Simulated assay, not measured.
Amino acid sequence: MVAIASLSGCTSNPTNTTTNAISSTPTPSIARLRAKPKTSEPKAISGKTVNVTLYTSDIQCQEFVPQKVTLPATTPVTNAVGKIIQEQDTADFNVSGYRVRVRNGVATVDLRLSPQSKRQFASLSSCEQFALFGSLRKTLTSNPQWKIKDVRFTERGEDIVL
């Protein structure tokens, strides 16, 4: 078993938490995301939107493919996490919500599985783990404006152990 905890450290950022919920309406292999931020996170410097690079897994689960997207400037970190999670939901694995907290350069992504999810985090294949956790980690640490150097994954506050 491997615990996914963190990668490295950075500068300090405000301590804020954001909560989102995800609908469990699967299409062929992707569920639709309905984000509903409750509080704030590190703000974008200007404008109502911000350009962000999302990193998602290639088909072979070997590399990350960058994709430029425009997200609301008020909660870009949370919205980026939501877009990655949205692509990972399937008919038997569904994340129903998540919270993102950034503190001192460490992002903690607290995930919530849907009660209807037939699979748990530990049942994900290495490719699925790469696609979900790897994409989140790469996206959060590769957008320099967020100053995130570490990423921690939890489920209801407990470290996710794989």
Rank of each mutant, 00 (worst) to 15 (best):
Q120F: 13
V109T: 06
P37H: 09
S12Y: 11
L71G: 12
K48W: 08
F153V: 07
A21V: 12
I85D: 03
T74N: 13
L113E: 05
Q116L: 14
L7Y: 10
P144A: 12
Q116W: 02
Q60I: 06
R152M: 11
I4S: 14
L113Q: 08
T139W: 11
E87S: 12
S46K: 09
A3R: 12
K138P: 01
R112G: 10
L162F: 15
L140R: 13
S96W: 09
K38V: 14
Q129G: 02
M1W: 09
V161R: 15
V151W: 03
I59K: 10
F64E: 07
L124S: 01
K118H: 08
E128F: 00
T78K: 02
I59L: 04
T25Y: 04
N51M: 07
E158V: 15
S24A: 15
D92C: 02
T78G: 15
N94W: 03
L132T: 02
F153L: 06
V100N: 09
R119T: 01
R103W: 02
S123T: 15
S125Y: 00
Q129D: 00
S12M: 11
E41Y: 06
K138Y: 06
L54D: 10
S29E: 06
N104G: 08
G97L: 04
T39P: 02
P76S: 10
A35T: 12
Q88I: 05
N51E: 14
R152H: 10
M1C: 00
T74R: 09
F121Q: 03
T78H: 06
G105D: 02
E155I: 05
L140E: 10
L111Y: 12
N20R: 04
I22R: 07
V100Q: 08
R112P: 03
V52H: 04
V2R: 13
S6P: 03
V109I: 14
E128W: 01
S57D: 02
N79Y: 14
S23C: 05
V65P: 03
T70A: 14
L54C: 08
D58Y: 13
R103D: 11
N20S: 13
Q88V: 08
P76G: 08
K83L: 14
S123P: 02
D89P: 03
R112N: 15
A131D: 05
D58T: 10
R137V: 09
T27W: 05
R156W: 07
I148D: 06
K147S: 15
S135R: 01
G47M: 11
S125K: 01
I59N: 12
R32P: 06
V100Y: 05
W146R: 07
P42Q: 11
S8Q: 13
L124R: 01
V109D: 04
F153D: 10
Y55H: 09
S40I: 06
V77E: 15
I160P: 13
K38G: 07
Q86G: 14
R101P: 01
P144E: 13
S6Q: 12
A107P: 03
F130V: 04
S96C: 12
S12G: 08
P42W: 04
S23T: 05
C61T: 02
V77M: 12
S114Y: 01
E87I: 00
A107N: 04
P37L: 09
S135T: 05
S8Y: 07
V81C: 14
S29D: 05
S6G: 11
G82V: 08
V65S: 09
D89Q: 13
C61I: 01
T78F: 03
L136Q: 01
Q62I: 02
L132F: 05
F121N: 04
A122R: 13
D159R: 07
G157W: 05
D110H: 08
D150P: 04
T39K: 04
